[in-house]
């Protein structure tokens, strides 16, 4: 926990204190719990380890009996991913689009979530649920109309189109998570600020946002991940300049002439993981803590 976060937390008196790593000797139960956690995590990562190994294999070494972990390693597949599939520029597109959609959705979604949680707008609850339900819409029902609109406006194959399209499913998500988060904040916060001469908007940006930073950051990460791996909208709305990595991967997997090359696909898969893991490690402190402060309340 950073010093600032600590201070804000103290100011917000009634937020439950976060469990802290216990210092000194741990009980046997506690040790079992830690180790079980590590084992579960390792189990979940095993398929990814296999993917990592596969990404360094020649195609002839991928399918063998028995499966082998000793093989002549090669970086051919990574070279192929960059050269043949043009993954470099597509990675940049993906980063731009995912961050763009994440930021835009975070701003709009957090404001709306705040309105739903605190401002007692008539009918807001229903609106909230409807927006939530919209997450269940088959994406194919949105993709084609979106394309037609983008085509009319002449903005197909641009980053901004994809960013806007992604807002359709990221905003509801942010709204729902942030609504729960704001519900758990003490009301007195902005009321006192407003009595001090702040407008509602001012109170939100000056008081609520800084306190909610951890929650916003964790929501942001999940939002970026949602946009990061999206395929269908990207397929329909891009063609050359704004093509994202999932589209390139879908193309590689559907090679109708030579069959899918799982080495190159694994390499591409590994490359998509790296930026997100770096981002997650950078902000991992807030990842849980943000949600911990009451992210979801029914």
């Amino acid at each position: 926990m950073t010093a600032t976060a600590e201070r804000t937390r103290e100011r917000v008196g009634d937020i439950p204190r976060v469990q802290r790593p216990t210092v000194g000797r741990r009980s046997r139960g506690e040790r079992t719990r830690i180790w079980s956690g590590v084992i579960v995590c390792v189990l979940f990562l095993l398929p990814l380890v296999w993917m990592l190994l596969t990404s360094f294999k020649f195609q002839r070494d991928i399918f063998t009996t028995p499966p082998t972990v000793f093989f002549e390693p090669t970086i051919t597949q990574y070279v192929a991913a960059f050269k043949n599939a043009g993954l470099g520029p597509k990675m940049i597109n993906t980063i731009i689009v995912a961050l763009g959609a994440g930021i835009l959705s975070l701003v709009a979604g957090a404001m709306a979530g705040y309105a739903l949680s605190r401002l007692h707008i008539k009918g807001a609850a229903t609106i909230g649920v409807l927006i939530l339900v919209s997450r269940g819409v088959p994406p194919i029902a949105l993709a084609v109309p979106m394309f037609l609109v983008a085509r009319t406006l002449g903005i197909t194959d641009t980053h901004i189109t994809l960013i806007l399209a992604y807002c359709s499913f990221v905003i509801p998500y942010v709204m729902w998570l942030m609504r729960g988060f704001f519900l758990s904040l003490p009301k007195e916060l902005e009321e006192s600020a407003m009595l001090d001469g702040c407008s509602r908007m001012g109170a939100f940006f000056r008081i609520i946002v800084p306190i909610s930073a951890p929650g916003l950051i964790s929501t942001f990460i999940f939002s970026v991940i949602l946009a990061w791996e999206e395929l269908l909208f990207a397929l329909v709305l891009t063609s050359r300049k704004a093509v994202t990595v999932p589209v390139a991967i879908a193309g590689m997997a559907g090679d109708t002439e030579h069959g899918a090359n799982w080495g190159a696909l694994s390499a591409a898969g590994m490359l998509t993981v790296v930026p997100v893991v770096i981002l997650a490690l950078l902000v991992q402190k807030w990842l849980i803590r943000g949600l911990a402060d009451g992210a979801i309340k029914g």
């Binding site: 993917m51 791996e229 696909l265 993981v273 997100v276 990842l287």
Partner: peptide, 28 residues
């Protein structure tokens, strides 16, 4: 949630399965 130093790392690593493109993870 067990309190120890490696907790943050485990949480970050736990994100990875969500990030891998479904086509790739399905194939793997």
């Amino acid at each position: 949630n067990a309190g120890w130093r490696g907790r943050g790392l485990i949480r970050a690593l736990f994100l990875i399965p969500m990030v891998v493109a479904p086509v790739v993870s399905g194939g793997i």
